[in-house]
Simulated scan of single mutants.
Amino acid sequence: MTTHVGDRKGPSETPVPRHHQLIVSLFGLYARQHGGALAVATIIDLMRDIGVESTGTRSSISRLKKRGVIDSVQVNGRNGYALASSVIATFIEGDERIFHPRRAKKGDQWLLATFTVPESQRNIRHKIRSSLVRMGFGSVTPGLWIAPGHLRDAVLAYFDTRGLNEYLEFFMADHVGGADLHKNIGSWWDLPALDSLYSDFLEHNRELLESWVQRDGFDADPDSDARAFGDYLVLVTQWRRLPYLDPGLPTEFLPDNWNALEAEHLFQQLHTLLAPRAQRHADRAIADHAVTA
């Protein structure tokens, strides 16, 4: 059974993942388990399983290569691609953040960041700001940024690998009093927008969970595994940006009925149901091309 990406439409706020985003998830989930590389034919076949034609796949592969995300390699004597060495560390860190997100507690320390960039290097300033946002920082003032302390190691490694540490200073800090921290957190991060993203994720995937729970048998047949693969690849692609936009703020400082907690639970349920089936399907596809090479 084929799962077509185009069939999974929803509100405009949550667009269906783009082809290159799905391919990034494909590499993150399966390439590293098979020597770090996938043959082009394997990528095309697996993307076809979710309704993406080969022309779209090839175009997205080319885009990712130009961006330095993947490199050309040989796989069993065939043309293939592997994750670029410069992004492997990011993928490893992403595994923890995506599949085992941490949530800070009220009394935990905070990570503060400040940076100085010469006026002649405005492009570096923009790169640092966008990177801070990507890693989950909130903006206290234009020159001071804040994130939960448990992100320290990941943040330091992220900026070090990108050669940006020379512009930044990081500090670990306790909140010891002053203004209402609950109120300030609501201004440092755009919590309504983030909660809306979690709400959209729930809306798109509650029925997906119900459909799999209600399926008869759960036999390990190829058609069922192919469907699980398509659903899982889209699911992970939809989910993986959220643990970065949400740095794991303490629940005590979040609005009532914060959608993140239910969304995290839903993702873990679907991950438990679909990941083994999707893995079987991907393994079959990769093995088939290895045999025919």
Rank of each mutant, 00 (worst) to 15 (best):
V140W: 00
P276Q: 06
V213G: 02
P15G: 10
L208W: 03
I185D: 00
P250C: 08
I92E: 13
T2Y: 06
F218H: 13
M47N: 07
V117T: 08
P17T: 08
F99H: 13
L254T: 04
G230V: 09
A154F: 12
D180N: 15
Y30Q: 09
N259A: 15
R58P: 00
T42E: 09
L156G: 03
A39D: 02
R134E: 00
G149F: 03
D174I: 11
R280G: 06
A193S: 13
A193Q: 10
T57P: 02
L194V: 13
I44G: 01
D153K: 15
R134D: 00
L209E: 11
G68S: 05
L194F: 02
I61T: 07
L181P: 01
M47Q: 12
H265Y: 09
L151M: 12
D195F: 12
A113D: 02
T55C: 01
S211I: 15
A113M: 10
T42Q: 13
I23H: 04
N257A: 14
S187V: 13
T292I: 15
I44K: 13
D246H: 05
T14N: 12
A220T: 06
G143W: 00
H19M: 05
H265A: 15
K65L: 11
Y198Q: 03
G136P: 03
A228T: 10
L249C: 04
F115Y: 15
L38E: 01
T3D: 03
A228H: 05
D49P: 01
L64T: 02
D223M: 07
V213P: 01
D225K: 01
E119P: 00
P142E: 06
K127Q: 14
A147D: 04
S130H: 13
T237N: 05
V87G: 03
D256N: 05
T251N: 09
W189K: 06
A104S: 15
G248M: 07
M47K: 02
T237G: 01
I50E: 04
S139Y: 08
Y232L: 07
H289V: 05
E203N: 11
D223G: 14
R58V: 12
N76T: 11
P243Q: 08
N79Y: 07
G94R: 07
S196K: 15
L273I: 14
S12Q: 09
V234G: 00
W145G: 01
W145P: 01
N205Q: 05
D108A: 14
H265E: 12
L235K: 02
T272F: 10
S12W: 00
R277Q: 12
A193K: 14
N123L: 10
R103S: 10
I43V: 15
L164R: 04
I185F: 10
Y81K: 06
H20W: 10
Q109M: 14
D231Q: 11
G143T: 08
D283L: 06
Q33C: 08
G177D: 04
G35Q: 09
S130C: 02
A84S: 15
R125T: 10
I43E: 05
R102V: 13
M47G: 02
R67I: 05
A157G: 15
